[in-house]
Amino acid sequence: MKLYDYILSPSCYKVRLMAALTGLSLDIRPVDFHPGGEHRKAELLALNPAGSIPILEDGDLLLTESSAMLVYLAGKAAPEWLGDGTAEQSARLQQWLSFSHRLTANLGGARLHEMLLRPGDIALLQAQGVAALRELEAGLVEQGLRGMPFLASDRPTVADIACFPYVALAPDGGVSVDPYPAIRRWSRAIRALDNFIEMPGIHRLHELKPEPQIGTGEE
């Protein structure tokens, strides 16, 4: 499986994270998104005319939507990440997968503007980002009241992975995540998962390991 990847792209990170969590290995093909704009050049446009990344290739299968990539990886290696298959849970999953695309536009757009100087109406993007975070917070509060720490279920699913990166990186775009206790709890639960990997801007939770000592033989 080959992933056309940009290390700073939260959407690409969704796929890298999902692969790590499910034990799948990816063949990474780095794309010079910035400063090179490679995603908009001939070679990659031939694969994905939309000019976006990530792009995932597996034999004949070519995917250009990160949600689809998450579903594919889960389907191949760890179907428990797709929920229990009931109509209700599948619907909850879809609801949040669709929601996650809005995050790419608002929180992601704000981040690209503030950090990588891409054009955009920053005040509008940030306001939309706040509205989206409030929506996510309300959803997580209700899930919490039902005794479920994750968006669609009592265990993480692709819906959580789809939403997590842009939320965790919202401050990059000038949108604080401080006012959302349920989001903070959920984000921490994701970052504490076995085989979780970070991306630049999402740092390691050092508290998960006790303070290592030199000379105990542990490195």
Binding site: I7, L8, D172, P200
Partner: peptide, 9 residues
Amino acid sequence: QTIFLQDRS
């Protein structure tokens, strides 16, 4: 870029 982005926050 990875190194610098880790410093940014």
